[in-house]
């Protein structure tokens, strides 16, 4: 028996990434489609459960001339992390102590967190920072240490930024994986970070990956936002992104961790 063909309108699939024209066996999917879906889901699941190799990332950043502090939230266990977003927003005691001795006023603290896709962080965080550094130099930004955080939710950056005494914090974090892309980074910028900030007080750059918003473009947009945030002393809904670098993708903060 030969494999069931795609539907005669399969060529329409070039207009969308949606799974159209799949073909059928009676009411059911062809075997190839069952397995192709299973593979995409498996990759997304692996991305959610992957653990961030913080030391490897620290080494990579050292190659860029950046010192890193390695911390974690109260939710390093992935099961706990997924169930308890509140713990992912709270630093472990050890981490707090570690950061307190590094306190020194700076313009921007960068936090790299695993979020819901360590895969994304491993794949693109170094490229993003590498692209961002020349902008930081150009703008004369005083950068704090880069903080690598495991078990991180976006709001963990509020506590980190406050302890370090940073004017603003940029949290670079793995976004919730979809079936088409399991390696998207999100960047959340918050001016005057402190625990209790809400999402309306942040600016978000999402879908950062080579096939989405390329890291170099995201870095330029982040630089613009940081510059504007420091000048206007705010972030959030009242700071509109005026860069013209969009790719037509909508920020989906509901996709963020």
């Amino acid at each position: 028996m030969s494999a069931p063909p795609h539907d005669p309108w399969f060529r329409l699939a070039r207009w969308t990434k949606a799974r159209i024209g799949l073909g059928r066996v009676g009411a059911s999917l062809p075997t190839r489609e069952v397995l192709s879906f299973a593979l995409a889901h498996a990759q997304a699941r692996d991305a959610v459960h992957a653990r961030l190799d913080r030391d490897a990332l620290a080494n990579a950043l050292a190659g860029l001339g950046l010192g890193a502090v390695i911390v974690e939230s109260e939710a390093t266990d992935r099961q706990v992390y997924l169930r308890r977003p509140d713990l992912g927003r709270t630093l472990s005691l050890r981490s707090r102590t570690l950061l307190e001795v590094r306190r020194e006023p700076c313009d921007l603290a960068v936090v790299i967190g695993d979020g819901l896709s360590a895969t994304a962080v491993t794949a693109h965080a170094q490229a993003l920072l590498s692209a961002f550094l020349p902008h930081a130099t150009r703008l004369g930004l005083k950068l704090g240490p880069v903080v690598i955080a495991e078990g991180a939710r976006v709001a963990l950056g509020d506590e980190i930024g406050a302890i370090l005494g940073a004017k603003a914090v940029a949290v670079v974090i793995g976004e919730r994986p979809g079936l088409t892309a399991a390696d998207s980074l999100g960047i959340y910028l918050t001016y005057a970070p402190r625990p209790g900030r809400n999402d309306g007080e942040r600016n978000c750059i999402s879908n950062v990956r080579p096939d989405g918003l390329p890291p170099a473009v995201a870095a330029a947009r982040l630089a613009w936002l940081v510059d504007a945030a420091l000048a206007r002393e705010l972030t959030g809904v009242s700071l509109k992104d005026e860069t013209d670098l969009t790719l037509g993708h909508e920020p989906g903060d509901r996709l963020g961790p």
Binding site: T16, R19, I20, G26, S28, R176, G178, L179, T180, L255
Partner: peptide
């Protein structure tokens, strides 16, 4: 009913046109 159960905008999985046929059957 979503093509192949994969919503490429909202990034989640729901039920597909095929799933509906399964239920009808």
């Amino acid at each position: 009913g979503i093509p192949g159960a994969d919503d490429v905008m909202l990034g989640y999985q729901s039920t597909s046109f095929h799933d509906a046929l399964f239920v009808r059957e």
